[in-house]
Structures are given as structure tokens and as C-alpha cells.
Design a protein around this nucleic acid. Structure first.
Length: 585
DNA sequence: CAGCGTGTAAACATTC
DNA sequence: CGAATGTTTACACGCT
């Protein structure tokens, strides 16, 4: 199926096959770059360079390695531990499935210089394992580059790190790029001893908390650790999906790190300009938990307390007064710590999932979209609708819609002509947007009935949106299964820190062929609260109303039920029951 | 293949 | 008069 390109020395080609595409990964162990080539069914290949963390410009040498434990080494250690945990688990899967003599699993990518075609399951496991190793290396390289740029200064805070700090030296970490990785299976005392760092020492597992699996996008409810381990073995085995999710998590962390560095630099400049003295050390000098994007965001919200407008992330970004609508957007919702055990989080999650997935998605990732130049995975129409419904009067002028876009999304602070045109185009085209003239001028409102009538999009927004979203995260040339997993994870991973993740169901749905704006609209209809179901008719506004004709008006009464069923299914919870959780399949 | 939804671009008209 | 606003058309893309 796959015809290998020209091989070079010190390169390991990993061929991952799925049903329709052949994914080729070429690993240059020396330069630690990964180039992926995805061949589609027509044999057209795309070659892209990515995942070098933007630091490839300085080459691959790691000069300063004098044996001292530098902050970046500690950062490596943190990342190593997180990846090691996943790797240990995944490899446990592999070791359980492979024969005991599968020594090749333990080989480093440097050692594997043969051209490996993945045709058997064991070889596939090897490929995944090697991908994990590459991910580690890339992450290390990225952090080294960050440190070289003076953007990262970190101190150890991760308990995982302290657990194993004595087992690795900084040198071993740095040289791990060229040496075989340590044995993946520790000396075991019990069948589950591979989990010993978490079970025996900490009595917990980083992927398990508050009775819930914290694997990105999972949220499976597990009564106890045993059940969780069983779930982990069953649902998060070593496969392309898990590997891709791991990769996504890395990208998320990287993006947040970069963004944090930028914002911190901006803050410093602002404070310098305003002759302010920071009351506390610079944010990025504070202990940083790399696995916690939420902590980063929280820190930002602490720097800019409530009531004070956040500084614009772009010099061109208009500063508009914050206007909190019914859908309160708050970074506080990013944090799970405020939710106690028991029913509370579950109720909240269900409530959120059945409220406004767009709203909750934005609420969950509000700070991310505000600061990261990532295109929101929503259609213009759904965004416009959300902006309007968020307004106190459920109406906005065009300029206010513009401001909402620029305020909420860093992505819309550039190419203003393009997206503003698109906004106007959508306002005019869609019947659900009604222009209402009043004494002050014209405002735009949402005819919710018409919005519900819209034909459900087959995918989230458009394929372009999904494509942009994926490419924005740097996965432009992954194969289909990878992209599916990546896209599926990309949003939920943004708040994977949280115990509750109300957006994941919508995210999963939308990437499985259902527009989540439709999820939104549907669940808003069924919500009895009313706060999430603003269905003001434009006629309520009295004045001139221009009626538009939209080409498609298909009423799909069954849509609500089917969507609800899907949401319920993905939640593994019955819609009319809060607890207990349904058994996971 | 057609139909559809969506994004993008552009021309044009109207209003401010 | 120019900018902002609003309408319409055309086209590309990916999906069903």
C-alpha cells in the first residue's frame, strides 16, 4: 500500500495505516524534527514541516548541559513525567498484547534504523511508542528554545516531579534524546504496579480525579480507582487515537506557553509604561504547572482582576467596555477546584451540556480564544447569533457585533475586511438575522424560530473551519484518523484541566457529523430555565422589519430528539437523570 | 454527480 | 465626499 520515499541514514520511517490513507512519519533522530507526509487515496502527497515548536531555526544542539538542574530541565522533567505516565500505560497495553519477547518495543528511535513497515499489531504498537518518544523530544526541544528566548523560567511544582525527582538527573533528561529511553515497565510488584507512582505513593492518578476520568474528552465516571484503571485499559489503549490526543495535548500546552510568554511580556511593558510596580513576581516566574492550562488562565485573570478591563492583546484591538450578557463568560468556569465532590459537578456538567454548548464552549475557552490566534470552530452565523443573544437587549448594531468579535477572539483582530464582510454577508443572507430600525439607527436581532429552521449543517460550520482549527494547532498533514482524533480533542483539551467539561459532548458531536451550533439550538429549546432560550421574535421590537427569504426552510422536528439522544449517549448519562452514572461501554 | 452549507471576495446601492 | 452599512452575486470547498 505504501511506497516509501527515499530513505536516508539515521531516519526512521513509520508507516501507519488506516482504512483510507497511508500516514508516513519520517523521524530524523538527530535534528529531532518530524515531517509527516500524508498520502490520500489519489496518491497526492502533502509535505509539511511542523511540530518543531517554532524553534528549529536554532538547530538541534543542546549546548548548555553542565549537570546542573536548570528550570528548563525541571520543566522537561515535568513533561517527562506526564508523558511517561501515558507512555507507561500505553506500553503496558502493548506488553500485554504482545509476546513477552517483544524487545523491539523498548528500542529507541535511534536504535531503530531499519525501515519499519507496520503491518502487524505489535509493529503498530512500536510505531505508536516511537511517536510518543518523538513527542517527548519535540516538547523538550520546544522548551529549550523557549528558554533560549528567555520566555520560560520555571520552578518545580508538579507533585509527579517530586515523586521521581531522584530518579532522573537533568543530564539524563537532556541526553535522552540520543540515548535509549529508560525501560518502560518498572520493576513490578503487582499486575498494576506500573501505576505505582500514583497509586502507591500518591493514592491517586493524574488522569483520575473526583470520580472521573480526566483523559481529554473522556469524562467517564468511575467509582473507584479500580474501575478507573479498568476503564483506562479499555478505553484509552495504545492506539492512534490515544497517541493523537497526546499530541494534541502537547500542542495545547505549547500554544498556551507561547501565549503566556507573550502576554507576560506585554504586561511587563504595560506596567513599565504606566510606571507600575508589579505587586508580585512576574506571572511566568511563578510556579507553573505545565499540565494545567487552567492555571495559566487563572493566573491571567488574577493579574487582571474583575472590574478592570483586560489589556487588548493587539494594538489594533478596539477597547470596548465589557458587556456581560446572560451567558456569563468567566474564566472561573475553567477551574474544577471550586466544584465539590458528588452531585454538584455532575449537575453542573449536565446543566451546561444542556444549556448552550456554544456559550459553554466560549465560557470554557474564553481566555484562550481571546488571546490565542486560533479560529473559533463556529460558523459566522452561530457566532453572530451568540453575540446578539448575549447582549442585554438581544440586539446589536453591526459595529457592536464587530466589537464582540474582536473582543472575544484574537483571531478576528486581523483581516478585518474579510471577516467583517463575512459578518455582513451572513447578516443579510440568513433569514434568522433580522434588521430592526429604531430611532437610533438599525440594530440586528435574532429570529430564533428561523434559526431553528435552518438546515442542520453536516459538520461544524464548514470543513474550512475544522481544517483551519486543526491547522491552527499544527496538524495540517496528519492522516484522517489522526485528524479526527485531534479535532475531537482539540477543544476539550483546552480545558482538560477541569473536572467538569461541559463542552466535550458538543465537541464530540460536532466532529462526528453534527453541527454544535445545532446542538446549541436544540438544547436551548429544551432547556426549561429560559435563560438559555431567548426566542424573542423580531416583531417584539416593533419597528421596521425586513423579511428575508432563505433558500432552505426545512423543519426537522425529529432533529431535537435525535440530537438529544446523541448528546445523552455521549454523556453516558440518561438525560432525565443526574446520578448515578450509567455504566460505561 | 448534484445539492447543500459555508467562507471568501467583490460589486453595487444606500445611509450616515 | 468618503466611510459605514447592507444586499447580492459568484465561486470554491468539502460533505452527503
Amino acid at each position: 500500500m505504501c511506497v516509501p520515499p527515499a530513505f536516508g541514514e539515521n531516519e526512521c520511517f513509520i508507516f501507519l495505516q488506516d482504512k483510507s490513507r497511508c500516514h508516513v512519519m519520517m523521524v530524523e533522530s538527530a535534528s529531532e524534527t518530524i515531517r509527516t507526509t500524508t498520502s490520500n487515496q489519489n496518491g497526492v502527497s502533502n509535505l509539511s514541516s511542523q511540530l518543531d515548536g517554532g524553534g528549529g531555526r536554532e538547530g538541534g544542539s543542546n549546548g548548555d548541559n553542565n549537570g546542573e538542574i536548570s528550570p528548563v530541565d525541571l520543566l522537561h522533567l515535568q513533561q517527562q513525567q506526564a508523558l511517561q505516565a501515558a507512555r507507561q500505560f500505553l506500553l503496558q497495553q502493548a506488553s500485554g498484547l504482545n509476546s513477552p519477547s517483544s524487545n523491539e518495543v523498548k528500542q529507541s528511535p535511534v536504535q531503530v534504523r531499519t525501515h519499519t513497515y507496520i503491518h502487524t499489531y505489535s509493529n503498530k504498537q512500536l510505531a505508536f511508542q516511537q511517536q510518543l518518544i518523538q513527542m517527548q523530544q519535540l516538547q523538550q526541544q520546544h522548551m529549550i528554545n523557549l528558554q533560549r528566548q528567555g520566555l520560560v523560567s520555571l520552578q518545580p511544582t508538579n507533585p509527579m516531579q517530586s515523586l521521581q525527582q531522584g530518579t532522573h538527573t537533568s543530564r539524563s533528561l537532556l541526553t535522552q534524546q540520543t540515548l535509549p529511553p529508560p525501560p518502560y515497565l518498572p520493576t513490578v510488584h503487582s499486575p498494576d504496579a506500573w501505576l505505582h507512582p500514583y497509586i502507591e505513593h500518591a493514592g491517586s492518578h493524574p488522569l483520575y480525579g473526583h470520580g472521573e476520568c480526566k483523559w481529554p474528552g473522556c469524562e467517564a465516571l468511575c467509582d473507584d480507582m479500580g474501575q478507573f484503571i479498568k476503564h483506562l485499559n479499555n478505553e484509552h489503549a495504545l492506539d492512534d487515537r490515544s497517541t493523537a490526543q497526546c499530541r494534541v495535548q502537547m500542542q495545547v500546552v505549547q500554544q498556551l506557553e507561547i501565549q503566556l510568554a507573550k502576554e507576560s511580556e506585554r504586561l511587563q511593558a504595560m506596567m513599565t509604561h504606566l510606571h507600575m510596580r508589579p505587586s508580585e513576581p512576574k506571572p511566568f516566574n511563578q510556579p507553573l504547572n505545565l499540565a494545567s492550562s487552567g492555571s495559566l488562565l487563572k493566573r491571567e485573570s488574577e493579574v487582571y482582576p474583575e472590574g478592570l478591563p483586560h489589556p487588548p492583546t493587539s494594538a489594533t484591538a478596539p477597547i470596548t467596555p465589557l458587556r456581560q450578557g446572560p451567558s456569563v463568560i468567566s474564566s472561573s468556569s475553567l477551574h474544577s477546584h471550586s466544584h465539590p465532590h458528588g452531585v454538584g459537578p455532575i449537575r453542573r456538567r449536565i446543566a451546561d451540556k444542556f444549556c448552550t454548548p456554544i456559550a459553554s464552549e466560549l465560557a470554557q475557552n474564553c481566555e484562550f480564544y481571546k488571546n490565542a490566534d486560533v479560529r473559533p470552530p463556529f460558523t459566522y452565523a452561530s457566532l453572530i447569533r451568540h453575540a446578539i443573544l448575549e447582549a442585554p437587549d438581544r440586539q446589536l448594531t453591526l459595529n457592536e457585533i464587530y466589537n464582540w468579535f474582536t473582543r472575544m477572539f484574537a483571531y478576528f483582530r486581523r483581516n478585518t475586511a474579510t471577516w467583517k464582510n463575512a459578518v455582513r454577508h451572513n447578516l443579510s443572507l440568513h433569514k434568522c438575522f433580522v434588521r430592526v430600525e429604531n430611532v437610533k439607527g438599525a440594530v440586528w436581532t435574532v429570529d430564533e424560530v428561523e434559526y431553528q429552521k435552518r438546515r442542520p449543517p453536516k459538520m461544524t460550520g464548514s470543513p474550512t473551519l475544522v481544517k483551519n482549527m486543526i491547522s491552527g494547532l499544527g496538524f495540517g498533514s496528519l492522516n484522517a484518523s489522526y485528524q479526527a482524533a485531534l479535532a475531537e480533542s482539540s477543544l476539550t483539551l483546552l480545558n482538560s484541566q477541569g473536572l467538569v467539561n461541559p463542552s466535550s459532548a458538543a465537541s464530540l458531536n460536532m466532529l462526528h457529523g453534527m453541527g454544535h451550533d445545532d446542538v446549541s439550538s436544540t438544547v436551548e429549546q429544551v432547556n426549561s430555565n429560559g435563560s438559555c432560550s431567548p426566542t424573542l421574535s423580531p416583531q417584539q421590537y416593533g419597528h421596521q422589519v425586513h423579511v428575508k427569504e432563505e433558500p432552505t426552510e426545512i423543519e426537522e422536528d425529529s432533529r431535537s430528539m435525535s440530537l438529544m439522544a446523541t448528546v445523552t449517549q455521549n454523556m453516558a448519562l440518561p438525560s432525565d437523570r443526574l446520578i448515578p452514572p450509567a455504566p460505561l461501554e
